[in-house]
Design a protein around this nucleic acid. Structure first.
Lengths: 241, 241
DNA sequence: ACAAAAGTGTTGTTTCTACACCCATGC
DNA sequence: GCATGGGTGTAGAAACAACACTTTTGT
């Protein structure tokens, strides 16, 4: 087969920043690769792009292999291309962000896989430029979540409004008025109240809601506004998606 | 030097979708590579990622080499990774979007370089998946421009409000009320009126404005709103930046 | 004098924010 | 019966969309 001559080929890795939420705080899924140079450090989940797969397929595969998690929400973040980012050999790092419902997989993970959830604001040292990837992933998540109902990807099928609000408040480290918040969220029609209540965190109990898939998809690309405007300037980071 | 063994290395190309605006319509800068298989087709400007450069450096280099254009606004778009997207050999295509002031370079281009501007809605056949790249670039531009004052990158230093409005109307194929439009734009404080007028398109003449760099940068990451809300749902494409 | 494009103000509607009380229950 | 968290409504402010006439000047 004819080839392009005199050009350098390089390794491409697919690195997945897997983000979860346990009801209280954001968590990050990390693995200990046991690389030679950085034995005690952790890294986001990654693997090399294989000859027959696309980036999307590779990202799904990496998440599946290391965690058993399937059908996860994934988006491409950015290519990390410093020629010296890996000391062994040049690797183009294609970072991806995955959002998962942490509850689904918490037990499974600790049993069968080598990955571990860390609280987002207490991360261990990360290898290479993985810390930078994580920061960028968070910034992009903050950006996207201010405009689109993307955080639902982090919640279980049934969730309560207080849970949803904690999710938003945690991401931006802000306090949101619950009356305004619930009015905004409900007015979009993307969630529906169930008759069942969650009594685990109050005596009165909070109604469970579930996503209305149809409305959710329809509204997904519209620009919503769950975050009070005055909070955004302080917190929306310098990301043009 | 130690290497990662048993892994496939591949070519990485940097493809730049260079977008301009001539005052009337959007244009795309294309080159005729004369590839063997697709002789008569055009392609967006691309080159292979070299061993010592980052993606950003490569993109700048590609634009500079093929057009002489320097200091252009560039952002990473997306990786195109279908293993068979190039018939000769697998290439990971890293697409970038560049926004340029077309006037600055129009003459220079046709004289010294092999690139040519095409009207965006009358493009020739493009090689490989370049048409898909262009579509994605436009969608992303529509998305970003609805939220950030990014289209100023396409204008010369001095521009008029009618010019700016045509820019927005053209991107979304909508009509905007000029009174509301100018009020919104001016209220951001990112542009300043000059005393000089542009008489080229009316007898009365339209005031020139220029960007206030400081305010522009400050507002760049805030979510603005130059596009009437009712127009957005029809036109904002399915892009989560 | 008239055609062609530029510039400008007001009003009603909608959307946002700020804010405080009652409800249901487990203990 | 009381402490805890959950739920709800209203009023003032701000932002938005809709809308029409006057200005300038080249011909």
């Amino acid at each position: 087969m004819l080839k392009y001559s005199n050009q350098t080929r390089l390794l491409v890795s697919v690195d997945c920043i897997v983000i979860g939420f346990d009801g209280q705080e954001y968590k990050l899924l990390l693995v200990q690769k046991g690389s030679i140079a950085e034995k005690e450090k952790w890294s986001v989940m990654g693997g090399f792009l294989q000859p027959s797969e696309t980036l999307e397929q590779a990202a799904s595969r990496v998440v599946l292999e290391l965690t058993g998690i399937k059908d996860v929400y994934l988006e491409q973040l950015c290519g990390f291309s410093d020629p010296n980012r890996d000391p062994i050999e040049r690797i183009l790092g294609m970072a991806h962000v995955a959002l998962v419902d942490i509850k689904k997989y918490e037990d499974q993970l600790s049993d069968e896989y080598l990955a571990k959830w860390f609280p987002m604001n207490n991360l261990p040292s990360l290898v290479l430029d993985h810390r930078e990837m994580v920061n960028m992933a968070l910034n992009k998540l903050r950006y996207n979540a201010a405009l689109h109902p993307i955080l639902f990807e982090l919640l279980p099928e049934k969730f309560t409004l207080p849970q949803l609000q904690i999710l938003y408040e945690g991401l931006y480290d802000i306090v949101i008025d619950k009356r305004n918040f619930s009015r905004k969220v409900l007015s979009t029609g993307i969630i529906k109240r169930l008759s069942e209540k969650d009594k685990s965190s109050s005596k009165k109990g909070a109604y469970y809601y579930r996503l209305m898939k149809r409305n959710y998809k329809e509204k997904f690309n519209k620009v919503l506004n769950f975050i009070p405007k005055n909070e955004i300037p302080k917190n929306i980071p310098s990301v043009i998606g």
